[in-house]
Design a protein around this nucleic acid. Structure first.
Lengths: 202, 202
DNA sequence: CACTTTGGTAACCGTTGGTTACCAAACTTT
DNA sequence: AAAGTTTGGTAACCAACGGTTACCAAAGTG
């Protein structure tokens, strides 16, 4: 959460306000669902009128995209940071995937990550696809590392393996609800463990 | 596609019309997305006005649910029929999963199956969850069969395995677009093969 | 032949995304 | 300091769409 300086410039104020809008929208979209959140609700929570928001975003869909990008950055950053640790590629992959699950199941990410596609226009869909490919390639690279350092089976196909692993992992975001009995950390460990099981050289 | 008799009774006509509405809506929802299809569009395609639809459905959301249920029935029927074949449990599981993928990636199922949840009210969500559990238990039962007949590894946990396998399979419905180069049948074979790889004895 | 039931239409309402006309306060220029 | 000019906001409005209501015509019924 970037904060503003004591004597903010005009530009800083603008940026700050825009980020606040996105933060507020992320929370509401993420928990209540995009369609159930009128712009007026976001505006009201920030103490302004709906029209004021249009000084910072060009449309409700644009706002959604900005929420998505912020969430996506958080996800990628968290995963890369988690993987930046000593150990075999298999171990690093495991911690990266677990972090992915935990971050993705944050309440302000639930709806954002899994259900965003049908809400977008074709051009925006492409941007989402690019982000997903980015995540995919991060994990795929680690799979290759695992083959090289011998911590993963030599006969695995990184493309197919990442398809199956990411599928299993993303599926968690569909059925897991934070309100449930299990903590997301436990679920992450279980599911990631199972998804990797067949690929380890154990 | 059920068709009507030569001299339909009133009740038959009613049912027929309701099914036609659902069929038309499924196609449009499935290809264009729920939010992008006004009821007027469906009505227009059927040559009536929007208000006429309300003789057959109680709301747009109710119509969506009916589309979902029809699709769900089709999916379960197709899978059960495909699995009703001689062979080891592993072989039957494979054909069942491949059928699942192929059916799910029909163009009038794309949006329906994967993106329906945020569109529903809590009560409807429960109904969707029940359907998913039904599919899940079908495959889980076959996993148990596989352990018993020795075609699947004895040490697999049906619950976790079905989680990973169904995750991988459902993920196909997210990224696969019929317009792509690959046919859905090929994709199904590849992905199902990979998802089952670690569970086979052999 | 009345009269009820059915399936439909036109017109309307409420919500909500998005726009426009306008205003006040804060910079900028002279 | 006075006169523009830009910025960030508001109130009022428009258009699209889900949903409802008043009404009508045709078919079925006693």
């Amino acid at each position: 959460m970037k904060s503003i300086s004591a004597f903010p410039t005009k530009q800083e104020m603008r940026d700050h306000k825009r980020r606040e809008i996105v933060r507020c929208a992320s929370e509401k979209f993420g928990t209540e669902g995009y369609d159930n959140v009128p712009l007026e609700a976001i505006a009201a929570e920030l103490g302004v009128t709906k029209a004021a928001l249009y000084n910072y975003v060009s449309s409700k869909n644009d706002l959604l995209m900005q929420c998505y990008e912020v969430g996506m950055d958080r996800l990628i950053t968290a995963v890369e940071q988690a993987m930046d640790t000593p150990g075999t590629a298999a171990e690093r992959l495991r911690i990266g995937l677990e972090t992915y699950v935990v971050t993705m199941t944050r309440k302000d990410m639930q709806y954002l990550w899994n259900y965003i596609r049908p809400l977008l226009s074709p051009g925006e869909t492409h941007s989402v696809q690019t982000s997903r490919d980015q995540i995919d390639s991060i994990f795929r690279a680690m799979l290759k590392n695992g083959i090289e350092d011998g911590s993963l089976r030599a006969d695995l196909d990184p493309k197919l393996a990442s398809l199956v692993i990411l599928g299993a992992i993303n599926w968690v975001g569909i059925w897991f609800r934070p309100s449930g009995a299990q903590k997301s950390q436990e679920v992450a460990r279980e599911v990631v463990g199972e998804a990797l099981r067949g690929y380890l050289t154990s």
